[in-house]
Design a protein around this nucleic acid. Sequence first.
DNA 1: AAGTGGTCTAGACCACGTA
DNA 2: ACGTGGTCTAGACCACTTG
Lengths: 242, 242
Amino acid sequence: MITSGKGAIPLYMQIREFLIAKISKGDWLPGDPIPSEMNLSQELGVSQGTVRKAVTELVEYNVLRRKQGRGTFVSNHDSQRALFHFFHIVDDKEQKVMPDSKVLRCHRKHASRSETLKLQLEDRADIIRIERVRTLSSSPTMIETIILPGHLFKDWDELDSSNLPNMLYELYEKQYGITIHSAEERLRAVAASKHDASHLNLEPGTPLLEIERVALTLNKSPVELRISRCNTRKHHYENTIL
Amino acid sequence: MITSGKGAIPLYMQIREFLIAKISKGDWLPGDPIPSEMNLSQELGVSQGTVRKAVTELVEYNVLRRKQGRGTFVSNHDSQRALFHFFHIVDDKEQKVMPDSKVLRCHRKHASRSETLKLQLEDRADIIRIERVRTLSSSPTMIETIILPGHLFKDWDELDSSNLPNMLYELYEKQYGITIHSAEERLRAVAASKHDASHLNLEPGTPLLEIERVALTLNKSPVELRISRCNTRKHHYENTIL
DNA sequence: AAGTGGTCTAGACCACGTA
DNA sequence: ACGTGGTCTAGACCACTTG
């Protein structure tokens, strides 16, 4: 499994991929501890420092989390982490506010052309479409459309669609074993439609910030397409470039 | 200088700060090689592995750059890097396009209240204000206002303001020894003013993506405030969340 | 006390670039 | 051939958590 020798792939990279595979397969679940560095190094026939280097990279990618004296754990992406990591809207005092949300519609349909492209689905694939309004600082601020591939969320219809949690990523992980790891966002300025305007309590044509997000798993396969239109009168999108 | 012992700050952290200080002071300039890991470890009285760990962190922060077989170099942030790292506008085929730019105005004035706050200046401090239009894919797409603290760019007025380079960060580094290292961006949707509209060749009230950026040096001191208003009809802002 | 991650060492060999 | 960074080892000791 782990091979060494001249011109080979470095051991720590092989071990890193081995660890990723274990997590992707579900052998180690979010929140679980992985074997200690000593155990892994003995089982894999390498030194502890080599295992350590592999683990360090996955800690940097937020796949694993070290706790001194306790062990190394598969990250669980709870609502706090989702808010911290994936939610970039803050109020004008730079404070992150936990959004409230109310579902407007939730139904199954066939994917549109652009949805199939962005979620890498087959033509007219079955999808779930959720529309909701999110309230920040007690005023309706965002209107969101969420598209999920039907085959990944088979028993979705059994959920109470009028009572979904604010932070869906936690639900994806706990109920469907799907962990969102990264995302690509595209931002534009658009004019509010009549529909947007009525739900956000403003005039049609008002400029809104549109955030189109494709959320990906650890293996980079797309799991969710989300289009958020946000009133940026009292809030804005924050991005730090390091 | 480098101290060890029980309960002390770890050596590699001290060395990391030592390296940062050398670069901030200008002892090692962008593009220059730093001493080899062996040399540093001997001079500092630690093992090569410890120096290596310090250097690795700075490579991850883009402060240093390793070249196998050649050495380790202080990053120079040329126009390619500025485009890659700080310019997040792409066309709808996800292609990054080198923007062209034309200066509209360039003059000195006193800082406004909000400018003093965002650039951490004193009341009514001297600032340089540049206004320009940027052309992407051969259509005027962005209108930018750039605010620079006057005291950091003393002989700015001697430059040919109608002929500034597209990528100002390279100029800051080469002419003023100021390297932009990170930035904080705030994005909103706004309606085009008459002034915006006339330069971007569209109707007043059209939604524009406003990007307010504060650019920082390695020591986190703010150097530039830039407000860009962007027509997102054919382009958008792209952000990857890892 | 035992086990975990965190730091640090000293030394080996490999891969790459330059002279 | 030599010097650089890149990988890997074996072992030491420290800091933290749990039983």
